[in-house]
């Protein structure tokens, strides 16, 4: 892994950068390879977040350095022929992903009572 300085340690539950959040949420569905994740992020954001290859692998590299995800390529027979790398959440990565999901849910819930902002009026 190519190590970078940012996100090597993560002591707080501060909101993640958008690309990291989308990738962690995509990995909540299970392990996947780089391009598969790119498609999942596109799908789960309804086409509003479309990553380029540099953003994808730069972010995956930071998540690897922060021990939020791990590579599982060796466990896939097809990965060897495809030369694809597979990734999955670590325990800490899953916890952070659930915190992010909770944060998003909380945000939506707070607006639920506001008329005209996507929720039924109270």
């Amino acid at each position: 892994m190519y190590q970078t300085t940012s996100m090597v340690t993560r002591n707080t539950d501060k909101p993640l950068p958008a690309a990291s959040m989308h990738l962690l949420l995509a990995l909540l569905r299970g392990e996947n390879h780089g391009y598969g994740l790119m498609r999942l992020v596109d799908e789960q954001s309804q086409g509003t977040v479309r990553m380029g290859p540099g953003t994808l692998y730069g972010t995956l590299n930071r998540l690897l350095a922060g021990d939020l995800i791990e590579e599982t390529t060796a466990e896939h027979d097809d990965a060897v022929s495809d030369r694809r790398r597979y990734y999955q959440l670590t325990g800490e990565g899953e916890r952070i992903a659930r915190v992010e999901l909770g944060r998003l849910r909380g945000l939506v819930n707070r607006f639920r009572g506001v008329a005209g902002l996507g929720g039924a009026p109270a």
């Binding site: 190519y2 780089g34 391009y35 790119m38 290859p53 994808l56 590299n61 790398r85």
Partner: peptide, 18 residues
């Protein structure tokens, strides 16, 4: 260089797939 050595093939594969 370090990033390239690690991810160049993956970057290119992702671009080709797109």
């Amino acid at each position: 260089k370090a990033f390239r050595d690690e991810y160049r093939d993956d970057l290119v594969a992702a671009f080709a797939a797109q």
